[in-house]
Design a protein around this nucleic acid. Sequence first.
DNA 1: GTTTTATGTTAGAAATAACTAACTTTATTG
DNA 2: CAATAAAGTTAGTTATTTCTAACATAAAAC
Lengths: 121, 121
Amino acid sequence: MKKLTYTMENYLEAIYVLSLEEEGARVSDIAKKLGVTKASTNSAMSTLAEKGLIINEKYKKVILTPAGLELAELTSKKHETIFKLLTEVLKVDPIIADQDACQIEHVISNETIEAIRSYLK
Amino acid sequence: MKKLTYTMENYLEAIYVLSLEEEGARVSDIAKKLGVTKASTNSAMSTLAEKGLIINEKYKKVILTPAGLELAELTSKKHETIFKLLTEVLKVDPIIADQDACQIEHVISNETIEAIRSYLK
DNA sequence: GTTTTATGTTAGAAATAACTAACTTTATTG
DNA sequence: CAATAAAGTTAGTTATTTCTAACATAAAAC
């Protein structure tokens, strides 16, 4: 599977986080979380559905497929790894660290993520 | 001045690095450094020139303006800081570290950059 | 149960950034 | 200095991502 764009990874992660509280995620909530319009979100949902990462039935909640869940979890774990490095090693303020992790997780290589994990052990 | 896009920040940084060796940077070298075509680079040069960050005379080398130099130096220093953390502390392969630094430098907060600098001392 | 509000969808437009291909100018070299 | 190679430019296309505005459907409130 071709690598997701930064944008699509963000949408997927938003769906994942929103789905932790209840089954599926609403277009409005995803849009609000990411600070974009519902129209943009809808367009993104089509893209993610085409890639088989979500199930997107009209007027229904967006649901992650197993493949989508797996990818979203990977991103989420990256986030945690980066967050730990920033807070525990570099002593960055947790609020700032969380914001930074949210950006860095989309651009960092697997090699570097693995290096951080080794270092943290 | 409106914040530069990641892409433009990258072009500016490439010009800066190439200008360290000789006066100005060539379109071909910028293109090669960033892995894009000369056409794409040319288009980007127009954008940077419009913003007053470079001087871009036809068929001549690209030169940073004082404003462009200042911005590029800021980005470059961030890059160096991140690169050091990745290679010296986390033992990431230098080639990977450089690629990652090139992405992270555009999204990382000043707070975290300062935290890394403190840590490296 | 109709009306109102919230939510979801679609179409069309704009901005960004990349590409290929054709062409022009400058530099190199024989 | 003419021929060739390298570098730079331009035009046109494609993909991504966003937006606004208009419209459709679902949920809520009265």
